[in-house]
């Protein structure tokens, strides 16, 4: 298990007064996100119990995978009987946005040690990246200590795991939550994540292609229709982005123009 080792490494990073201060600052800056993330941890706990992951399985999901929407998708697909390879593929695709975060942090925090990147990378989430990127934007010339990111990330990690635990207990002891449209909350959460991302025409194209194909191919075995819909949507979005970029480029000057 990576997390206890990681926590030890991060804690030792925070020992010097400067690092301790940076750790506390990261923790403080990320605190509002702990609260907004808590309902989702709670929902995940309920879902995990509902799909049959059990108390320990559900908690292990949050403590070892620690990946918000990817956890929901993996648990949801597991409950629908999807094959492991399909679940791993969807998890990888859903987490691919972390590559962008990793790329940004690797560039702007080049002073972080390699061992630190490997450890804090374990805790890289939308929230910890958002807080850290905001800090980097605000002070672009100050080298940000690794401890700042550690504070923001570890706080999120504990808040997420605590809320998952509460959700699991609720799921195990409460009434049949499916009667209350509990799954609607999960899909509404997905909608809350992707709707604000629909900011340009190519993204609408990607979403539209994925939507139509996912509904059309829904009966393909092993959720292969889902994978096809995702890949086709990405290709369609990328292609339309390229098309738009090409159209917005100024026309190349001809030889005659150059002579003039």
């Amino acid at each position: 298990m990576t997390s206890p080792v990681a926590q030890h490494g991060l804690a030792s990073q925070a020992k010097s007064p400067n690092h301790r201060r940076a750790f506390a600052l990261g923790l403080r800056d990320a605190a509002p996100l702990f609260l907004s993330g808590a309902p989702f941890g709670l929902l995940f706990g309920i879902l995990a119990y509902d799909v049959g992951l059990g108390l320990w399985g559900g908690q292990a999901f949050s403590s070892l995978i620690f990946a918000g929407s990817a956890q929901f998708a993996a648990a949801d697909l597991f409950g629908k009987g999807a094959g492991l390879l399909v679940i791993f593929g969807v998890t990888a695709l859903l987490n691919a946005r972390h590559l962008l975060y990793a790329l940004d942090l690797a560039t702007r925090c080049a002073h972080w040690p390699s061992w630190g990147r490997l450890i804090v990378g374990y805790f890289l989430t939308d929230e910890s990246y958002a807080v850290t990127a905001r800090r980097l934007d605000a002070r672009p010339h100050d080298p940000l200590p690794l401890a700042y990111f550690a504070g923001a990330s570890l706080g999120m990690y504990f808040a997420w795991n605590l809320s998952t635990a509460v959700g699991l207990v609720l799921g195990a002891s409460g009434p049949d939550l499916s009667r209350f449209g509990f799954s609607v909350a999960i899909y509404s959460a997905y909608i809350a994540i992707f709707v604000p991302l629909l900011v340009a025409a190519p993204r609408w194209v990607a979403a539209g292609v994925s939507l139509v194909l996912a509904v059309w191919l829904r009966d393909w075995p092993n959720q292969l229709g889902l994978v096809t819909a995702i890949l086709a949507g990405i290709v369609a979005g990328y292609a339309s982005q390229r098309l738009m970029d090409r159209r917005s480029e100024p026309p190349a000057a001809s030889a005659g123009d150059e002579a003039l």
Partner: peptide, 9 residues
Amino acid sequence: FVPICVLVA
């Protein structure tokens, strides 16, 4: 495009 397509699908 990846998170949009996954969540929509």
